[in-house]
Nucleic acid binder design. Structure first.
Lengths: 331, 331
DNA sequence: TTGTAGGCGTTATCAT
DNA sequence: ATGATAACGCCTACAA
């Protein structure tokens, strides 16, 4: 490996001068700078970032922990985070937690241990009470659904309000028996329970009874949405609208409707949450709640950077703006 | 920051002994080990991976450069690579190249510069002739479509054979005027041209004329597939089968067919390539060529590891196995 | 403007 | 079994 010393020897200067040239610092005469640059070229020298960060105490890498990158929502999220990080000179190491509390805790420990500069955690399972562990003042930003109270930086979205608006839209379109297809439990405070509350609120406000038989607790993958609809249909329950907890689940719902011979939107209207890239291309195209993902990614990276600058700053709580995007599935 | 020296002082031993304990090396007496462990507990010491790395000359991080992680195929790929890397103790930093040669070249330079241990590059634009630059013996594995000849490790897939099989399947199902919807140019050797060749070969073998009007050069996103079908339809061209260059494009094709009122598979049969997770859930579900992605990811990581061990080893060329997955879109 | 000395936290090597 | 010393490649502080 070519080091600064090698370059220095080649150029007939000291290491320090090379360092100054490499870092574009003032105070190097042009002829010397030129000689050094040439020596760098010839030797194929590359700055050892590792050595630099050993001094600086930073790595320039932030971790991003998501359940699974191959779910469109998280792919999209990762894409935005990577871009936002790039603008601030960070690289992003992506970890997968498998949507399990254990995986999420490990991601934290790993990031800390590996000296990433911070971690953006899209937690779906970790319990706020699992906190307190020894993450000390390692910069962590909770992204998305899970709310850890005021003790930690959090960039969330309008789960209740968004789902309420989505449900209200179905009601406006004339739906009277609206089902919700969502994750496997309403216990605890997380995306599933919060979105369910938005759904329930809207029904109540409209004076529609919330039939428990129309709450399908299944899971967060496409397959769960499909299964939920099949079972709902098999149970003989009647429904003319479906609120899906995410677009991915909604995609399964659309597939499930096709399986059982129900037409969307003629027989059943469907609305999702997230506005994943695919939503506009499904048949029918999917109405959905669209949080500003770019905004969230930028905010999350900014929070990491801010905490790096001032570890003592107070945790902040942000909620991303959203809008309702209406397409064929609720026409 | 708590260092080994701190722990050593606290435990009344030398740094070296602490290092030995931390790394679980033999040759430390039980009482001493215990004292050291206690000191670590009390002080909240954490190994500085950076310093270790500075010594070892490795970072434990490999780069993965893909066009865009928010395309399902690359999300899936990233997921597999991350898992495969994890098993060998590597972390994965994901870069986005934007499907541009410049971005791809930058990813190489960056990875090299940031001292990643290697780079897995899913190149779609970089020209093999751009090689030769000064990446020296930095471990790079080309993943997927782009073939850089024998000069570099490559894990590819059966582009021709897969597409040929897909096209043959359409022919068997009775299609006589088969269109291909693909990327924007057939020039050069890459996924687009190679899959097109497979398509052309199958047509020729079956004695079907390859009508140039049925080759739609559009692009690699969903939107391109949709647009291609609309234009094909508007042009008055008749077709009863479509080979899409990827599942993502196929998804756009399905949407496009819906736009112009053509039914799939009744009027037009469609087959894709990749078998992304969504393929089974589309309406209609999508027939496709399914390369073994996990196999590819593991092979790629293994090649990086192997080259790290022996920089002089000969580049290898691997082709992933594939199978045809038949679903409703070609029923 | 340029150079020297010392240290960042860890580990390999060689003594003890 | 344990410790002293010298690197790894760079940067800060200070000296020339």
């Amino acid at each position: 490996m070519v080091t600064m010393s090698d370059v220095a020897r080649l150029a007939g200067v000291s290491k320090m001068t090379v360092s100054n040239v490499v870092n574009n610092r003032a105070g190097v005469s042009d002829p010397v700078r030129l000689r050094v640059l040439e020596a760098i070229q010839k030797s194929g020298y590359r700055l050892n970032v590792n050595a630099r960060t050993l001094k600086a105490g930073r790595t320039g890498v932030i971790g991003l922990a998501v359940p699974e990158v191959d779910r469109p929502y998280y792919g999209m999220l990762a894409s935005h985070v990577i871009e936002a990080a790039k603008e601030r000179g960070f690289h992003v190491a992506v970890e997968q937690t498998g949507a399990a509390a254990e995986g999420e805790a490990q991601a934290i420990a790993q990031s800390h241990k590996l000296q990433f500069d911070g971690l953006i955690l899209s937690a779906v399972a970790l319990d706020p009470r699992d906190r307190g562990q020894s993450w000390g003042d390692f910069p962590i930003v909770m992204l998305g659904e899970r709310d850890f109270g005021a003790s930690i930086d959090h960039v969330g979205m309008a789960n209740e309000a968004g789902t309420r608006a989505a449900t209200e839209h179905l009601i406006e379109r004339g739906c009277e028996r609206i089902a919700i297809v969502t994750g496997w439990t309403l216990e605890g405070v997380h995306v599933v329970s919060r979105r369910h509350r938005g759904y329930a609120e809207a029904l109540e406000a409209a004076g529609l009874a919330a039939d428990p038989a129309l709450t399908a607790l299944s899971g967060m993958h496409m397959g769960h949405g499909r299964k939920a609809i099949r079972e709902l249909h098999a149970s003989g329950a009647k429904f003319d609208g479906v609120v899906a907890v995410t677009d991915t689940v909604a995609q399964g719902v659309l597939r499930g409707l096709a399986d059982v011979g129900l037409r969307c939107p003629e027989d059943v209207r469907v609305i999702g949450f997230d506005d994943i890239p695919e939503a506009a291309y499904l048949v029918p195209s999917l109405s959905t709640v669209a949080p500003d993902h770019r905004w969230m990614a930028e905010k999350a990276v900014a929070l990491i950077a801010a905490r790096l600058d001032d570890p003592a700053r107070r945790p902040e709580e942000h909620t991303a703006p959203y809008e309702l995007v209406l397409r064929e599935s609720t026409r």
